[in-house]
């Protein structure tokens, strides 16, 4: 197990609170993750797990508290640079439309990723690794199954070479073999910091630490 206090922090969430429509979905939540640490968040639905990931991505702004990624404060000035250090795989990835090959190439058209375009040569190897048939590259992404989309989203995230990966039930639609392939791959990248939201035992076994969010984090707004 990696001790977050003794390593440079990849992620430092300090007492964030988030409110939707007057209702607190997260209150005073804190979490510190060392570089290379792999942590799994568990807890019942509606407890705010996905909200935490969305806050880290700068897609939801907490009402209180602060988030630092690799020492940099997440605010309106740094968010664009911070997102270049993060990769995100959603439970039901919405990757747009078009052939899978185009979907995988699309992020490299952004200035932030243009230098990484050569990583596309890894696509066949990653398809093999995650048990995906190569002909899916020519299929429209919208016609793929949930499990296939999850693995494509994961490949897309890996190709971007981010130091921190956020996984939101990213293997929920995978069969046992595919899930093992995904977990094995992530486990063998020592420098990769992982914050995973997951329910199953395999992810909990994979992680250096597991945090269970419970209902006291969900408080009604007075």
């Amino acid at each position: 197990m990696i001790d977050a206090a003794n390593n440079e922090l990849a992620l430092d969430i300090n007492r964030i609170s988030v409110r939707y429509d007057g209702r607190w979905v997260l209150r005073d939540f804190s979490l510190r993750l060392a570089q290379g640490e792999k942590l799994t968040l568990t807890g019942p639905s509606g407890v705010g797990k996905t909200t935490i990931l969305r806050c880290v991505l700068g897609l939801v702004q907490p009402d209180h508290g602060a988030i630092r990624i690799n020492g940099q404060l997440l605010n309106e000035y740094h968010v664009w640079n911070i997102r270049r250090q993060l990769a995100y795989v959603a439970q039901e990835p919405n990757l747009g439309s078009g052939p899978t090959r185009d979907v995988l190439e699309r992020p490299f058209a952004f200035r932030a990723n243009s230098a990484l375009k050569n990583n596309l040569h890894r696509v066949p190897e990653l398809f093999d690794r995650f048990l995906l048939p190569h002909h899916l590259l020519d299929k429209d992404i919208t016609n793929l199954s949930g499990g296939e989309k999850q693995r494509i989203a994961l490949i897309s995230a890996i190709l971007l070479e981010r130091p921190i990966i956020l996984l939101d039930e990213a293997s929920s639609a995978l069969d046992a073999d595919s899930k093992r392939a995904v977990i094995d791959y992530i486990r063998q990248v020592p420098d990769l910091t992982v914050l995973a939201v997951a329910h199953d035992d395999e992810w909990q076994a994979f992680a250096d630490r597991t945090i269970s969010l419970t209902s006291p984090k969900v408080l009604l707004h007075e």
């Binding site: 969305r54 991505l57 700068g58 897609l59 664009w80 997102r83 270049r84 993060l86 990769a87 995100y88 959603a90 039901e92 990835p93 919405n94 990757l95 747009g96 699309r106 992020p107 058209a109 952004f110 200035r111 932030a112 990723n113 897309s156 971007l160």
Partner: peptide, 15 residues
């Protein structure tokens, strides 16, 4: 969701 995914991939607003 697709729009947020694009932001999460490092796109600037105009991109």
């Amino acid at each position: 969701k697709a729009y947020h995914h694009t932001l999460a991939q490092g796109a600037r607003l105009q991109e």
